[in-house]
Design a protein around this nucleic acid. Structure first.
Lengths: 227, 227
DNA sequence: CCGCTTTTGTTCTCTAATCGTTCCATTCAT
DNA sequence: ATGAATGGAACGATTAGAGAACAAAAGCGG
C-alpha cells in the first residue's frame, strides 16, 4: 500500500501529532526524511492523502491530520483504551443520507395560539424520519406555552401530529375547540362531555360538549432542539 | 493539525473552561498568549473554529466551547487523562447541506446504564432531521430512567448529543463519572467541584472533583415517539 | 423598563516571517 | 536513453504581531 518513504513520513507525522499535537511543517518533514527539498515532501503528502491516510486543509499551514495507520500503528498513541476495551475507528464523517426513509411533513405553525390550525398553513416543512411516524398523514406544530409541561412537552418543541378524527381516552390530541382555538391536551370522555386535560398543575381541566370539540389529530412524536 | 500558537490557545481555553466553566475573553487570551493585540487572538480563534476544535456563538461574549482536543494535548488540564478512557474520534468534516435534510447518526445505546459510552458502540443508527442538529459530530442515546423528567426528558426518549469536551454551567451534558458511569445531567460548577443535577426532586445532586467527571457531549436535541 | 457606561468582540491596515506550491533541471537506476 | 525520484529556487499564500477605530453585548442605576 505504501512506499518506504511514504510509510516513514506517515509515521513521523503521526508521532509528532501524538507528542505535541502540532503538525510538522514541510520544512520539518523535509529534515526528518533527510531530504533536501520540500518538493519531495509535497509529493509524498499528496500520495498519502490520495490513499486516505491523512487529510489536510488546502493551503493551510500545519494542517495535517492522520486518518489511519497502515497496520500495527496505534493511531491514538499511548493512553488509548485504559478502561474501555478499544475503539479503533478514526474517521467517521457524518453525511446526510438519501431521503429514503424520510418524510417531509408540513409545519402548520404554533399550537395554542388561539387560532384554528387551518388558518395559518405555513410554507415551512420539516423532514422527519419515518421511524418516528407510523402510517397516515402527518403534520407538525410548534408548541407554545407550558400547559403540557408535565407530559414532557415544552414550549418550543415540535409536536408531530397524525391526522385523525377520533382518539382513545388518555391520548394527547390536537383539539379544536368551538372552531376557534386549537390546543394540545389529554383527551378524556366523561359521560356526554369531553374533558381536555392539561399536564400542568397550574391549569384546570376543561369540559366541553361533544360538538364543541373537534379532534384534528393525535400526538405521534416530538422533536426538540436545544439552543 | 495545529500550529504552535493555535495549540497553545486551545490548551488555554480548555483549561479555563474546565476549571471555571467560563470561557476567557479575548483580552484574557491575549494576555495568556503574551500578545499585545486582540486581533491575533481573533485569527487564532477563527483557525481553531475552522478546524472543528472549538465552536462559538458569533458576537457573543465568552461563548467558546471546546469540541475536541488534539492528540498530545492533556485533555482535562490536570490529570484527567488518567481517568479518561479513550478519547476523541478525530476528523469531522462539515458538509454544507440544506437545512431540510436528514442525517444518520450512531445510536450508542442507553444512557444511565452505568457503562461508559464508548464501550458499547452499537451498530444501530438513527435518522435525524438536520434541522435539529447544528454543526459538529453527534450521536444518539436512548434515555433510561426518570432522573431528567422535570426537564421534559422522559424514559425511552432519544437524546441527541453533540460531542464536546466542555459545557457551560446549566447545560445538560453526558457526563462520564470516574470512567464508569455515563449519565445525562445538568452540569454546574461550585468552586472546585462539579455538581451534577438531576431534574427530578426525588434525586439528589451529586458532587465530584473536577477530575472525576468527563464531559462527553451536550444535549442538542430530543426525539420521542408516541404510539 | 429605559438609557448610559463598560466590557468584549470585530475589522482593517501594515509589516515581517513562515509555509506551501510549482516548475524545471538533475540524478539514479534499469 | 527513459521513467521515476530528487534537488533547487522563485512565487504566492498563510500565519503572526501590532495598533486603532468601531460595533455589539452585558451591566448598572434610576
Amino acid at each position: 500500500m505504501l512506499t518506504a518513504k511514504q510509510h516513514e513520513l506517515l509515521l513521523f507525522i503521526n508521532q509528532r501529532l501524538d507528542e505535541s499535537g502540532i503538525s510538522p511543517s514541510f520544512e520539518e518533514m523535509k529534515a526528518a526524511l533527510d531530504l533536501k527539498s520540500k518538493s519531495g515532501v509535497h509529493r509524498l503528502i499528496g500520495a498519502l492523502e490520495e490513499r486516505g491516510f491523512i487529510r489536510r486543509l488546502a493551503n493551510r499551514a500545519r494542517a495535517l491530520e492522520v486518518m489511519k495507520m497502515p497496520e500495527g500503528g496505534n493511531v491514538g498513541g499511548k493512553n488509548v483504551a485504559r478502561f474501555a476495551p478499544v475503539k479503533e475507528s478514526k474517521p467517521q464523517i457524518q453525511i446526510p443520507v438519501a431521503a429514503n426513509d424520510v418524510m417531509e411533513i408540513p409545519l402548520h405553525g404554533k399550537i395554542a395560539a388561539g387560532v384554528p390550525i387551518e388558518a395559518l398553513e405555513g410554507q415551512n416543512s420539516l423532514s422527519v424520519p419515518m421511524a418516528l411516524l407510523g402510517a397516515g398523514e402527518h403534520y407538525a406544530l410548534e408548541v407554545s406555552g407550558d400547559s403540557m409541561i408535565e407530559a414532557g412537552i415544552l414550549d418550543g418543541d415540535y409536536a408531530l401530529i397524525r391526522k385523525a378524527n377520533t382518539a382513545r381516552d388518555g391520548e394527547i390530541v390536537v383539539a379544536l375547540v368551538r372552531g376557534e382555538e386549537a390546543t394540545l391536551k389529554y383527551l378524556r370522555r366523561e359521560g356526554q362531555q369531553i374533558r381536555l386535560d392539561p399536564a400542568n398543575g397550574s391549569y384546570e381541566p376543561q369540559y366541553y360538549a361533544q360538538h364543541e370539540v373537534e379532534v384534528q389529530g393525535k400526538l405521534a412524536g416530538l422533536l426538540r432542539r436545544y439552543h
